[in-house]
Design a protein around this nucleic acid. Structure first.
Ligand SMILES: [Zn+2]
Ligand SMILES: [Zn+2]
Ligand SMILES: [Zn+2]
Ligand SMILES: [Zn+2]
Lengths: 128, 128
DNA sequence: GCTAGACCCTGTAGTTACTACAAGGTCAAG
DNA sequence: CTTGACCTTGTAGTAACTACAGGGTCTAGC
């Protein structure tokens, strides 16, 4: 299949597919006589692997480690577990940070009293 | 004061200060005869305003809107409130997304059973 | 007087993970 | 034979900085 078909199948922009190939995440496509990229089921699987990993928030570097593991005939469970653990930690850290922000923002917003005040204290608060 | 002093005072890298000036977030520094930037209390206040806003997760564009409001002699409370509201929504959306990931990741990791399996099912799961 | 070191300047390139062209080649249908 | 959909490459843009390279300035010590 050509790149447009793969793009439609995986709901992934054509440019992104080319980009993944360029940075070496996706294996090189076979080229037809006219220069068009040609894909098979194997490529589709890899692309979906990448897309699923990205949807779970794995960074490109982490996805590369995952694909490296997946390329082995018998990926070590401990390695995968560790990778997951580290990334769950990444996600947890981000959640904590965002919750901290949300709390601070809510407190700030409460000073506004529904935006009905004539002199907003939030700006003063931010100026310190 | 010179840029190094401001940097130390606000715990903000020198490059970031120059960057904020370049993109017009921070008002231009006065230049001395030798070309060095010179700052006063007013600059320090603005920089802290920016840094506090960034720490609350406001984007550069949102910070620009905040500074625009702060520049007015009587910022409208409703405008500030609205800006806060929109950003709290941004943060909330990110939190939800990350929680979704965390749940999916935990489920995936549970299939590993402490990484003691000989054949890791996670890779298969990601391949689809 | 001279030099070492700390500080400052500009401008450019790198980061992450794409996205959006511009300028051109290929192919099937009408 | 031309229109339009598809494909190619390469470059530049996004957010929000960060890291130099290559230079100028100033102060302290010898
Ligand atoms: Zn496993
Ligand atoms: Zn991660
Ligand atoms: Zn208010
Ligand atoms: Zn926001």
């Amino acid at each position: 299949m050509r790149i447009g078909q793969l793009s439609a199948d995986c709901d992934c922009p054509v440019e992104t597919i080319r980009y993944y190939e360029k940075i070496g995440l996706l294996p090189q496509a076979v080229r037809r006589a006219n220069g068009y990229r040609s894909y098979d089921e194997m490529h589709r699987k890899w692309l979906q692997f990448i897309l699923r990993s990205r949807a779970l928030g794995f960074s490109q570097d982490e996805v590369r480690q995952l694909t490296d593991l997946a390329h082995q005939q018998r990926p070590a469970c401990a390695d995968v577990y560790e990778l997951l653990d580290a990334h769950i930690n990444d996600v947890q850290t981000k959640i904590r940070e965002l919750k901290r922000m949300r709390l601070a923002l809510s407190r700030l917003q409460a000073q506004c009293h529904d935006g009905t005040l004539h002199d907003c204290p939030v700006i003063d608060e931010l100026m310190g």
